[in-house]
Design a protein around this nucleic acid. Structure first.
Lengths: 330, 330
DNA sequence: ATCGGGCATGACAACGTTGTCATAAGACAA
DNA sequence: TTGTCTTATGACAACGTTGTCATGCCCGAT
């Protein structure tokens, strides 16, 4: 900037004014400054600017996802990015891998870069460590899973309602013995879905049978093995409800291997790419990651714009997509 | 920091030393400083530190992807992140959507945040605009597609070789009439794959037949329509080679709709999630996005560590995964 | 007692920018 | 002419940190 000022024979401040598009610079000087910027390939140093400016905004937000490469998380990421670019805001993204410690380290690293806001898909179960950032004015929104021990905005899928709806769908197709395969019970959403399953059965006046329930299945392999077990017992279920997309894949794989994929109904929570090309197509209760991400970013920026209303939890509805596997009769 | 210094009754510089783990501070003072940090919830301001430090490193890199939510790009992203976190480096990511202008705007936004390096999956065909950043010392690595009009490191899939191998595979299974469905010809990788197809045929002494080739198919729908056309003509191909994963999906969908999925061989470039669960499983020439990302990050950090050797283009091999569709006889 | 050397600590300037305020130049009225 | 007001411009400090260098202290050798 000093070089530009010298080249244009003006003061630093005038260059600053031109670069920031402030009014009150004569067109003649402005032209000279712009020409000098061009000639010297001047790049505005946004970080130095942030340091000095009164609003202190870095025009950067941090996003902590479970894994940037998993389809759900990356759809969130993209939706957040789309809202952010419209405001000229960049996105720092990181993966927590379901590890509390990594989540925390990421947040601290973001904080030391002075991000304006944080969107977190949390893995941890105590978010008091975020109080400091909050006090420093960092906006904070939780996605997919609720905050714990801290009041903050959240954007969540209505997991329980979605699963209840799934149970109802299977019952409507004649099923009474409905198995459930769920993810690690410490994950909040997994708990909600399990609860939805139990409530759904209760609504339909069906007694839950412990032998049809398998929890803490993380990953395709475990789900596949559990499905196998479930179906090999005497008096097996006629339908399966799976609480997460990898579990759905594992269950489908098991059904295929056992030659039961056209006989046992399967209804999965969370959509799967290509589910429509399988035989049968897989019926799912689809979440709307893009909708969640967009809303989370909207809430975040509303806070950054000065919204001081009490923290609120927003719910995004699910959508049932019938493709065949969920409509197989008992 | 000033508050911490006051609280610990030391100078600013001493706090700085403790925070940065520099030697030469008596344990007694260090303890006092750390206690004060703790008590005041002090967060080191990494951006101010970058501004002043002699190496000027922001410990942040920028990654421009085609779309952070597409499986290939997000796998790249994750692999890059994994290398970066090991060095305490954060990743700014953005989507160019195959748009030259968005790519450029992202790069400039990253540059004004003074990222240490850039990893770009380019959409544009002239990268001279990056010369300024390069001159400023920003490390630069291209992934998936080669740089144009600039010398820079690149990490690429060996597209042509992969496709040649695919042709050979189909011929080995008895095919002579092999159709080709390719993506937009202006995308460098699409051109390479098309060339690989033609070379592969030539190697096998098969004359290319224009009527079996369809290019510029971007997205599932166009691919599906083109596949249909290709198969409805007289003397149709007995095998299809598809040059991109969405095209493979479109082609498979068309085959399914026409009831030909067990009759016409299909070999796709780029792997597809769940391809093994379809019937038949889809044979693919798989790329290794994680391998590409890791290598790109390695090259980038080697440059940041001072490697001044001439720019180099690295090639990551493909892997053929036979799952059934590519082994259907004519 | 004096000196030299090593070590812990701090004062101060600087990084690239912008907020604040002062000043110069010009326009216009009295 | 003088005075007042407006507008364009610049000088200077400050943002939170670290590099440089000076200072003061203690220790051991002379």
């Amino acid at each position: 900037m000093r070089d530009v000022a010298a080249q244009a024979r003006v003061s630093l401040k005038t260059v600053s004014r031109v670069v920031n598009g402030e009014s009150g610079v004569s067109p003649r000087l402005a032209r000279r400054v712009l020409a000098a910027c061009e000639r010297l390939d001047y790049r505005h140093n946004h970080t130095a600017s942030t340091l000095r400016r009164s609003n202190r905004r870095s025009a950067t937000i941090g996003v902590v996802l479970e894994d940037v490469s998993n389809p759900f998380s990356s759809a969130l990421h993209r939706a957040i990015e789309d809202v952010a670019v419209q405001r000229g805001v960049l996105v720092l993204a990181g993966s927590s891998d379901e590890d509390e410690d990594r989540e925390r380290r990421l947040v601290l690293a973001f904080a030391s870069r002075r991000v304006d806001g944080l969107i977190i898909q949390p893995s941890s179960h105590d978010h008091r460590y975020l109080l400091t950032e909050r006090k420093a004015g960092t906006a904070l929104v939780f996605v997919d899973r609720p905050p714990a021990s801290i009041e903050a905005d959240a954007v969540l899928t209505d997991n329980a309602a979605g699963v209840r709806r799934g149970v109802q769908h299977l019952v409507a197709h004649g099923h009474r013995r409905i198995g459930y395969l769920g993810d690690t019970h410490t994950i909040a959403t997994a708990g909600d879905r399990h609860r939805g399953y139990l409530d759904g059965l209760a609504n339909q006046r069906i007694e839950a049978d412990e032998r049809l329930i398998r929890l803490d299945l993380h990953g395709i392999e475990k789900a596949e093995a559990a499905t196998r077990e479930l179906l090999e017992q005497s008096n097996p279920p006629s339908a399966l409800l799976t609480g997460q997309n990898l579990i759905t894949i594992g269950a489908f794989r098991a059904l295929r291997r056992m030659g039961l994929h056209q006989r046992i109904a399967l209804l999965g929570f969370d959509d799967i790419l290509l589910a429509d090309l399988l035989e049968p197509g897989i019926t799912v209760i689809a979440q709307d990651p893009a909708g969640i991400g967009r809303m989370a970013a909207d809430v975040l920026f509303r806070r950054l714009d000065g919204d001081r209303s009490p923290a609120q939890s927003h719910t995004v509805p699910t959508r049932m997509i019938a493709r065949g596997s969920g409509e197989i009769p008992p």
